[in-house]
Amino acid sequence: MNGQKRILGTLLALVAFVASFAAVAPSMASAADYPTKPVVAIVPFSPGGGNDILLRLVAKYITPALGEALIVENKPGAGGQVGWTALSKARADGYTIGATSLPSMILIKSLREDVPFSLDDFQYICNFQVDPIIWVVNADSQFGTARDIVDFAKANPKKLNVAGDGPQSNVQLQHLVAAKLLEISSNFVSYSGSGPALTALLGKQVDMAATTLSSAIPHIEGGRLRPLVLFYSAKMEAIADTPTAKEAFGIEIPSIGMALRGVAAPKDVKAEQIATLEKAFKAVAESPEFLEQAESLGLAIQFMGSQESTALVTETAALVEQYKSLFEEK
């Protein structure tokens, strides 16, 4: 008995000791200069994916501009929902930020029920990369151009097998919008990511794939895959010969599925801290070494500041609202 009492006493003393430390700690942290410790960036996807590689690449170059390291923390789950929920609830002390990906974030919010985060829970720091959707086929495919695909799909409704990341993904949204405007119907088969979808295409399981440009680049450069059309208004350097949707079909198709990758912070983070972060990211986006490596990986860097990024979210949300019923039709 005595022994147990002694343990209890010791424990109480320990708690008191620790508590006194905790009381002192916060007051030391609220100094004016920011940042004084590494900033954590939540990536709501598994390591190795598009967002992950982008942020890790940024992390490699941001330390001089930020003054502290940027640590990438993967928090995958439910197509990003788990990570974004965590970001929306994170402490607003400026030391937790997170990767954003439009329109995926908006799709999750508008297609699912009971999503615990809202688009207003974030302050958008910047947008970093655009990753448009393309149609690709195997190098030796019977389809020479995007028009061939449309002709085939018109002649054989629902027979064209299209692999793509899904379900309810930005890729599928782009494909559905394109199919709707081109008045074709195809069979979209969801794979768990652009990687598996392209593998299925390489293995000739499907007729074509819809994918983000960055995932297809290595295969295009390796000569195994051929891009047919780019769903974006401007040409991309990596595939300069590929026609845009406007050139290929003569009609305007919104680049609604284009992945826009950036970073955001919880909404209560101080404005000065947001500005510091924005500046640091901007410095990376302008650094020649970073740009060179990003280019060699096929990442199209387009920097957009905080205000522009916020406007972009509203704009994209409206577009998604307009087209989301396409997911139901099938």
Partner: peptide, 13 residues
């Protein structure tokens, strides 16, 4: 940290 110490010491005892 606090709860781990409490838990480990408590349950060992």
């Amino acid at each position: 940290f606090t709860s781990t110490v409490l838990f480990l010491v408590g349950s060992m005892a």
